[in-house]
Design a protein around this nucleic acid. Sequence first.
DNA 1: ACGATTGCTGAATCGGCTG
DNA 2: ACAGCCGATTCAGCAATCG
Lengths: 369, 369
Amino acid sequence: MTTIKDAGAPVALPLDTILAGDCIEAMQGLPAASVDLIFADPPYNLQLKGELHRPDNSRVDAVDDDWDRFDSLKTYDAFTRAWLTEARRVLKPDGAIWVIGSYHNVFRLGAALQDLGYWLLNDVVWRKSNPMPNFRGKRFTNAHETLIWASRSEGAKYTFNYEALKALNEGVQMRSDWTIPICTGHERLKDDNGDKAHPTQKPEALLHRVLVGTTKPGDVVLDPFFGTGTTGAVAKMLGRSWIGIERDAGYRKVAEARISRVRKFDREALEVSTSKRAEPRVAFGVLVERGLLRPGEELWSLSGRHKAKVRADGTLIADDVKGSIHQVGAHLEGAPSCNGWTYWHFRREGQIVPIDYFRQQIRAEMQAG
Amino acid sequence: MTTIKDAGAPVALPLDTILAGDCIEAMQGLPAASVDLIFADPPYNLQLKGELHRPDNSRVDAVDDDWDRFDSLKTYDAFTRAWLTEARRVLKPDGAIWVIGSYHNVFRLGAALQDLGYWLLNDVVWRKSNPMPNFRGKRFTNAHETLIWASRSEGAKYTFNYEALKALNEGVQMRSDWTIPICTGHERLKDDNGDKAHPTQKPEALLHRVLVGTTKPGDVVLDPFFGTGTTGAVAKMLGRSWIGIERDAGYRKVAEARISRVRKFDREALEVSTSKRAEPRVAFGVLVERGLLRPGEELWSLSGRHKAKVRADGTLIADDVKGSIHQVGAHLEGAPSCNGWTYWHFRREGQIVPIDYFRQQIRAEMQAG
DNA sequence: ACGATTGCTGAATCGGCTG
DNA sequence: ACAGCCGATTCAGCAATCG
């Protein structure tokens, strides 16, 4: 019996699995707009070894060392644009991508992203605390790599867990330079001979920051150059779904074993700080409705210089202006905008308290109820 | 009488002057293969949309100058490739170029350099110890800019003063990430109204490291986007010849006045280390790089009996000895060893202060960064 | 005089929901 | 689609003022 798949039927995503094969072909088998985030660590070298494809997906013939640099760069660009095009198709409209590279290839990557319609959000520098020295003393120690973070399109509502990242960074907002050691020691995967299993294994700390910062629990993360599966391992720990693509059977095997050993963190551990923006919205009028503030009661700015009267409909009236708590505050301060919740205060027993106190009380009730 | 210039005759270089006009046309007037180093800080093409306010409602004074506006990426690329082509013609065969940019434009710059036949040597990250925060909490703090260092061609014998850079960096080889504060305070040039004279003035410490590291005394340094002349000012201090190109008459005037105030450092101060030596790990060179101590400035022992002169690479020279602050101190005291940080003092307004004062200052900054 | 406090500013691609 | 409006959001360094 043959199962015929409807052309329009939703295709199930191969979640939490490693797809074997070329990344462009494998991505072609995935449905459009199905992935929340892509993390890609493509080949850095310019002397491509034949795994490359032209824009029409025909295979590039075997390596020819006599190729001049122009042809080589051109070939690399064609490969880059081919897989980035497929990646963009697979991304959800509000999805985003991270790519990582060194100065050999990162300018090709960045230019291609811009040309294909991605919107650059930041470039991020991975500062290696323990880089390999420059042995010949002919250049600067190559002590960093560059990541580019881009949304699928300009205006996309990409995920950015601002408060979580700020918490990771001792309470100040996360900068575009991250100091992280290279992957060594126990974390570095070894093959049966005790040699490193993969030449460019990325540290889990790097993926941790990427995934905590720019995905939500349950999001689908795709890594088209999976290697030994750092992306999958960290995604599993963090309660994200993942899809890996890898051509090399040896790497797939190592990745499979590695990820099976990983245990997901507790749900509590995965809860990250959220911003006020994510909390439910409360109208000022509700405070009046519930009798927390009485119509006719006076509110004061912190300095006590300005005051306004509460009206029954949840607007304020001051000497020469009426409107929302925000509008009246902005007008009195001559400011372009004003957060009325923190600007206005009420008095109780000699104390002066911001009205946000009541909002928090209401939010707590909403949570409980 | 008319002087007829032979087509093949050497054309005199307009050394230590600012050329007025468009950088492409001005470079066309320079002879081929005449310049040792180019430092270029081209427009970044920021493409800002609306206004931005800080949380305290103050307005951010953004870069909205006409010279930073381009119709499209295509227009920007055409401009970039035009000036980089002319720059390459003007460079000596063993010459090199530095370009600086942010994620908005640096991928266009890097890709263009590669396409035009330059050979990338390093990308270098300028980590700002005091960047402007991301006020809306929507992205990572944009805390760095990227410099690309490239030779005119593959195989060129570019200048790289390995030992001088190592001396500047506590005796370990210089990495590809440089932590330097943005240009503020007295170094920041102001116009007659007290406003910043140029929106994107670069810190002298950045140019100090570039020129000490990749030029020789007497080299010709060209800056096709001269602005207020940081490149010229530092080149003059360091005994390099310079040529600036600038379209804006206001900037030229500021640069002219600035550079005329600069004094060249002593010749002795400009001799940098060329031989290998086992140096103790001292950060003294950073004090020089950041302008806390001037090359040529005299340091004194507490008693005032001994003195020595500061050199640009962070070594000292006294009557009959040169070396690190520790070595010179030990020699003058006839002692087996000496802590140069507490031995040497500088004078400010009649006060005599140990140089360790500045080290503590730098350490505080590094902590912050 | 000197430490503490307040104020200003820097190459920035810096909303999101509702009607 | 678009307008209107709510309402969230900052770090380091320097200078001027205050006590």
